[in-house]
């Protein structure tokens, strides 16, 4: 079939989909996924997914935030640097030091959190390849149930192990309610 994307199976219970996922993992499939209305506890190991990498984005964002805060406060109040469209100058307030990490800390701290939050969410979207409004799964007739109370598992035909009839009967043996075709 030219416009086939993969084969999808529907399950009724979290336990059903979890056992099925374990078997698909053990069979060595690579390009497959499960669609569930909520995150099922223990599904990541059942699918063999490694720990999420969102945290790396967060640490980068936080470091940039802290540095930005400290540099900004130093530049505006203690430096005499000239940048395009803006100049720093020594701001005299009550004979206090022009710069010290102590008074710069509250603002830098808030910026650390602000940048980390944006980085975490940006990282989540990048890793999830979202926004993407046209995924083949979203065209499946029954997919609305996946955000309500049904559980789906699909194997893409790009998978090196994918073999039309064999994969279909493999999925049928996992005890689904029904098995269907995913169109591209």
């Amino acid at each position: 079939m030219a416009n086939q994307h993969g084969i999808i199976a529907k399950f009724d219970t979290p336990a059903g989909i979890m056992h099925a996922a374990e078997k698909v993992r053990d069979a060595g499939y690579k390009n497959w996924d499960v669609i569930t209305p909520f995150p099922i506890h223990g599904m990541d190991p059942a699918m063999g997914i490694k720990r999420s990498l969102v945290g790396r984005f967060t640490i980068v964002g936080g470091t940039i935030g802290l540095t930005t805060g400290m540099l900004m406060i130093w530049f505006t109040g203690a430096s005499e640097l000239s940048l395009p469209y803006m100049d720093g100058y020594k701001l005299i307030v009550g004979g206090k030091p022009y710069f010290s990490p102590q008074f710069a800390f509250p603002v830098s701290y808030e910026l650390t959190i602000l940048f980390s939050a944006f980085a975490s969410i940006g990282g989540m979207f990048i890793l999830n390849k979202l926004p993407r409004h046209h995924h083949p799964v979203l065209k499946y007739k029954d997919v609305a149930a996946s955000s309500d109370d049904k559980f789906f598992l699909y194997i893409q035909n790009e998978d090196p192990q994918f073999d039309g009839e064999k994969t279909r009967s493999f999925l049928k043996n996992l005890g689904p309610v029904e098995v269907g075709e995913l169109e591209e």
């Binding site: 996924d33 569930t36 989540m124």
Partner: peptide, 9 residues
């Protein structure tokens, strides 16, 4: 779309 690879992230 509630894919578990997405839920994980």
């Amino acid at each position: 779309r509630g894919s578990n690879r997405q839920w994980s992230n």
